[in-house]
Design a protein around this nucleic acid. Structure first.
Ligand code: ZN
Ligand code: ZN
Ligand code: ZN
Ligand code: ZN
Lengths: 157, 157
DNA sequence: CTAGTAGCTCCAGTAACTGGAGGTTCAAGA
DNA sequence: TCTTGAACCTCCAGTTACTGGAGCTACTAG
């Protein structure tokens, strides 16, 4: 009898580049199905788990939310169905990416202008501080950053 | 005796475009100083609070983290000091914005290509699904989205 | 005096993980 | 067989920058 290929969680982690904790987290929220367990209660995955996790990771890398990914995974359960909804989700994602780029470009413009105006002196005279203190046409020409944007984030290693 | 201008929190909120809860939150984490209170324990702000909050908001809109803003506010306490550190914080922020734009542009490229290849048929044949499932040069030419990016986020009204 | 709006505190939840404590299991070598 | 050390387990708390709600109190106009 040939034995089917099974992976412990650390091996799956290595093969997909997804952290062990994250894999467990995906299971907890129902994105990954519960794998088989050894008698000692350790998870053992098969190649289909690996493919599903690769799908999830690649989608995340493309900026899809876990909710969108959940939907995409749901849709793939029905391979004969039209792919309209899949493409819709992807188009929505593209739209959001475009919006985020536009927003960030506006920020860049303002940051650059701010920095250009500073001649390096005392804080009391610093244009950076002045501009930050005053978002009106007098100081800041950009009108399109009304709402905050997620900054940096993820203290990732 | 002339009375100095004081604002209840709702008025400050209206004037700065910052939600009431957010103002209280900034106080809680020590970004905004505790204002005076009425005998009935309600907050009353003065114009300096408004300026400080405007500074915080504009900085947030430019993508600075609250930690960076805390530092900037700390620096302004010493107006005779050189503005080097201020400009450093701003330059770091600009760098991050540039990186985020670069990352998002790569995502856009991949999303666009993915969508172009789909001819609209069954899910089983959908290129979008295929590409999502397979981030290797066979499917996905982009090599620069190794780490996830914050997606959308903030269910803001 | 009363009604309605605005304020108060405290707590929980969001997205998508990450890290740690404290304990158990596995696999390999002696 | 025993031992050692890495890998695994569960549970919980923390991250960022807020947001929303429950349940209560204060202020103000009529
Ligand atoms: Zn300067
Ligand atoms: Zn501005
Ligand atoms: Zn398609
Ligand atoms: Zn890819």
């Amino acid at each position: 009898m040939t034995q089917i290929e099974t992976l412990p969680i650390g091996e799956l982690s290595r093969q997909t580049g997804c952290k062990v904790q994250t894999i467990r987290y995906y299971e907890q929220i129902g994105l990954m199905p519960e794998p088989a367990r050894t008698t000692g209660n350790q998870r053992r995955y098969d190649p289909r788990h690996r493919e599903r996790l690769a799908f999830i990771r690649h989608s995340r890398e493309l900026g899809f939310t876990l909710e969108a990914i959940r939907e995409l995974l749901g849709l793939t359960d029905d391979p004969d169905c039209s792919c309209e909804m899949v493409d819709d989700i992807a188009r929505t994602q593209l739209l959001q990416v475009n919006q985020r780029i536009a927003r960030l470009s506006a920020l860049r413009t303002e940051l650059v202008r701010m920095l250009e105006q500073c001649r390096g002196g005392r804080i009391a005279d610093c244009r950076v501080i002045e501009v930050l203190a005053d978002h009106t046409p007098a100081s800041c020409l950009s009108q399109d950053h009304e709402a905050p944007i997620e900054a940096g984030g993820r203290h990732a290693g």
